[in-house]
Design a protein around this nucleic acid. Structure first.
Length: 840
RNA sequence: GGGCGUUUAGCUCAGUUGGUUAGAGCAUCUGCCUUACAAGCAGAGGGUCAUAGGUUCGAGUCCUAUAACGCCCACCA
């Protein structure tokens, strides 16, 4: 028998391994319809956080639901090597041991990365188990494993041959800490206090000068021109002349270019083609020299005057400003707050640099994706759909994707060079002297293939045939650009199909005040602390049902407490049911009482709506509706009714039937506790609730007429209790009642107080539907009582007036649905009755 | 500069295609140890649904403006 209290620690013990060992998580029953989800592979950089917990909770709910509905479900687990992120961690670990990555060498470094991967991979698998997620471990993949490596290489080679991948010298975002190129998406802009420095560039051969406003004075060594707008009356006359570049002993031309905006700054822009993306474009238009003035670690190089060589960017800025000031070339410092790009991973300021890199040509891929999104049966359905707009706007205006990274941990680029020749292929070319590209690919290049590379692609495997396109993908909105978009265009280009049918986008988890969780604020929540305190069922249920998908979730521990209470409630209701149905051999539904019919009707209704909500991914609505069914209908009313009928095998059967259904409905969200209770049922349809059949709507149990009768009873009981509490009437007050309905009499404990003749004292009337009662109780009427009564009368009068007015409106009566109008009339009649009782 | 989202009870959020007097949890108040559950039970109070217009018999819901907050994108020297 169950304990009186729900003990989540005890309940969660041993179940996961048991499920796993029995093979419930595994796909492979080919007699069933396939259903597939691939997990967004977590980075092997560390432990899972609350966001991961949220993400996998949703997926597990979906996959358990589908499994119970009889699908051959594959939830494919895996992890991401996370090139730059992991490499940064390993570099740091080695550094702490006094080891330098470059001195250590590529091979040994990669070994260290693999060690790291195995270590954290194990942690992640343990955490998955603690979350109770039903992934098919037989199919687990890693983005750097052999199969995926092959897929990645093949895509690279094919794209190269199709001209979709090219190598080129462009200005790219350079991370001087990791010493690698980054894609635009890996650059995070944040506001920074800075200044507009007004520099004095003297015009050659005159006493005049130009006031050049810049935020980056230290890049002046790389200036190769200053630009003004051709229509700018102030500067027009100088076009074609030159200015003296400070400290460099050279003059650079004053050019006219549209980039110079008359409204901005002073209208004069210094042009540094090697260190600014705009200036790079200007340089291209005017054939300007590109002078790189920094080393890969963003220290100043030998293209700067000797004094500055070796300084960091920051030190160089200070030094330049000082020297400018000394030379009387610094006109003004205007404080300014502007957006500065930082590396997503290392956090350092990104330096635009000209480098030879590999790129994916985006225009055609983007166009194709946008076209497919217009086709109803081929598009990816976003939930909520507004995120499709976000995707579209990004795809409409996207730049070529820089995919090469100057890292070691990743898929090595399958390109070989010899004497200016390039060879791209699956294997190294024949012959001597070929040298493979040192670089690896952006980690997102391999994750973009995840929905199909994990299933064996490019081979035409059975899994690929069955499970691709995937049925669903679940991820947060912050990686739509990084990942979702790229999976889409890769899948569509390579296989001509969408990667998945539905794409569920959930929000981010914030703290109670709505702030992002961060290390520096110390407001992060460790999901595993919460699991210890409240159990994983409570955590999963809370995360899944708290908010609609797409909106951010403010994490509130008190809600976890109330979820725990809810589970405890279910636990105790189950305890009652189990105590009463012990020994039940089979379900019988003969001679159902009205109350039995009522709860069955309510139950079937909730089954129907639950399925609808599950299918539409409206988990929050599922939550509120099942909550009120379980709490109000089942616990507060039906169980109370059943207490007076506990010998009946039919009522026992109904209790068992409805409880079983409740457990099944909740199982996708609370797998452990529902399994624990399910195992104690005297009658069950499977050896585990995990593989039992999800409830189906059974119309034959629906009885609307009886339901109405019972609902009237419940209403009456409630009204009766209300009158008693409101008037502080003691239990033994005498009562005349017009029914001998056992349920009413027992629920209201009227057995010993019923009388037939009215007493000659003050009385209170209760009426609801066909039920009427009078309670006799002499009591001095206080001012409070009078006020209360007056309020009730006034409220009723107002309501009656409003309703009469409504029904007098011909337009309303003519246009509103008839049922609605009838209901209004009924309510009006009821209210008038009530009023009559009160004013009697 | 574009785009998106949010604004509903003290707090966190629901509110399907417009349809009674707008819901839940937590918090507050009153009364209860009623034999599944005091981490519970029976009740109560609390909202001019951000603002201003409009459409409609009827608007939290649809339309138009406005405001505040938040997010995303964009080459702001």
């Amino acid at each position: 028998m169950l304990d009186t209290k729900y003990d989540h620690i005890k309940v969660e013990e041993n179940k996961y391994n048991d499920w796993k060992e029995k093979g419930y998580f595994n796909s492979g029953d080919k007699t069933k319809q396939p259903y597939s989800i691939v997990i967004p592979p977590p980075n092997v950089t560390g432990k899972l956080h609350i966001g991961h917990a949220y993400n996998v909770s949703i997926q597990d709910a979906i996959i358990r639901y589908k499994r119970m509905q009889g699908f051959d479900t594959l939830w494919l687990p895996g992890m991401d090597h996370a090139a730059i992120a992991t490499e940064a961690k390993v570099v740091k670990r080695l550094k702490d041991q006094g080891i330098n990555k470059y001195e250590y060498g590529r091979e040994k470094f990669l070994d260290a990365c693999w060690d790291w991967t195995h270590e954290y991979g194990g942690t992640i698998r343990d955490q998955w188990a603690a979350m109770g997620i039903s992934v098919d471990y037989n199919k687990e993949r890693f983005t750097l494993d052999e199969g995926l490596n092959k897929a990645v290489t093949k895509v690279f080679v094919d794209y190269y041959n199709k001209g979709l991948i090219y190598r080129g010298e462009k200005i790219i975002n350079w991370d001087p800490a990791a010493k690698t190129a980054l894609s635009n998406e890996e650059v995070i802009y944040s506001e920074e206090k800075s200044a507009f420095y007004h520099l004095k560039y003297k015009i050659t051969g005159t006493e005049e000068y130009l006031d050049v406003a810049t935020t980056r004075p230290e890049t002046l060594f790389g200036d190769t021109a200053v630009a003004v707008n051709k229509d700018d009356e102030r500067y027009k006359k100088y076009i074609g002349m030159t200015v003296e570049l400070p400290f460099m002993n050279k003059s650079i031309p004053i050019i006219a270019d549209e980039h110079a905006d008359m409204e901005k700054g002073t209208g004069v822009v210094k042009i540094t083609p090697a260190h600014d993306p705009n200036d790079f474009e200007v340089g291209n238009r005017h054939n300007l020299e590109r002078i790189c003035i920094m080393n890969d670690d963003a220290t100043m190089n030998e293209n700067c005057p000797a004094k500055y060589v070796g300084m960091t960017r920051e030190d160089a800025r200070e030094a330049v400003l000082e020297d400018l000031k000394a030379a009387d070339l610094l006109l003004e410092i205007e404080p300014l707050v502007h957006e500065v790009g930082h590396s997503e991973r290392t956090g350092v300021m990104v330096e635009p640099m000209i480098k030879e890199q590999w790129f994916v040509k985006m225009d055609g891929l983007a166009e194709q994706l946008l076209k497919i999104q217009t086709e109803k049966d081929n598009k990816v359905n976003f939930v909520p759909d507004r995120f499709e707009n976000l995707l579209k706007s990004w795809m409409t205006d996207c730049h070529d994707w820089c995919i090469s990274r100057q890292l070691w941990w990743g898929h090595r680029i399958p390109a070989w060079y010899k004497d200016g020749e390039i060879y791209v292929g699956m294997e190294a070319p024949e012959g001597e002297g070929w040298k493979q590209d040192e670089d690896v690919l952006d980690t997102w290049f391999s994750s973009a293939l995840w929905p199909f590379s994990t299933l064996g692609w490019p081979d035409k495997t059975e899994d690929l045939e069955r499970f691709y396109p995937n049925d669903c993908l679940v991820t947060a909105y912050d990686i739509i650009f990084f990942w979702v978009a790229r999976m889409m265009f890769q899948s569509e280009e390579l296989n001509g199909v969408r990667p998945f049918k539905d794409c569920i986008i959930h929000g981010l988890i914030r703290d109670k005040e709505g702030r992002k969780m961060s290390k520096s604020l110390g407001n992060g929540v460790d999901p595993f602390d919460m699991i210890d305190k409240y159990g994983v069922d409570a955590l999963r249920y809370y995360l899944n049902t708290d908010v609609a998908f797409g909106t951010d979730l403010r994490f509130d521990e008190t809600k976890l407490t109330s979820t725990w209470n809810y589970i405890n409630k279910i636990w105790n209701a189950s305890r009652f049911v189990l105590m009463n149905i012990e020994g039940l051999k089979e379900l019988t539904f003969d001679n159902l009482t009205d109350e039995d019919k009522w709860i069955l009707t309510k139950y079937e209704k909730i089954v129907k709506s639950s399925i609808a909500h599950m299918d539409k991914y409206e988990f929050n609505l599922f939550g509120t509706e099942t909550y009120s069914f379980i709490y109000d209908d089942f616990c507060s009313n039906y169980i109370e009714f059943a207490k007076f009928n506990s010998e009946s095998n039919t009522t026992k059967s109904v209790l068992c039937y409805v409880l079983t259904g409740i457990l099944k409905l909740l199982h996708p969200f609370m797998p452990f506790v529902t399994e624990e209770i399910y195992q104690m049922l005297p009658i069950k349809d499977a050896e585990s609730i995990m593989i039992s059949e999800y409830p189906k709507y059974d119309k034959s149990f629906v009885d609307k007429e009886t339901t109405k009768v019972v609902e009237e009873k419940i209403e009456f009981i409630k009204a009766f209790r209300n009158v008693k509490t409101e008037n502080n009437i003691p239990k033994d007050a005498k009562v005349i009642i017009n029914t001998n309905d056992e349920i009413i009499i027992k629920m209201l404990k009227l057995q010993d107080v019923m009388i037939n003749e009215p007493e000659d004292i003050k009385s209170y009337d209760v009426k609801s539907g066909s039920y009427e009662a009078t309670i006799f109780y002499e009591k001095e009427e206080t001012e409070e009582d009078k006020a209360l009564k007056e309020k009730q009368i006034n409220d009723l009068k107002a309501s009656i007036a409003r309703r009469k007015n409504l029904l007098a409106n011909e337009n309303y009566v003519a246009k509103a649905p008839e049922a609605l109008v009838n209901k209004e009339r009924e309510t009006l009649a009821k209210e008038e009755e009530q009023l009559a009782l009160l004013t009697k």
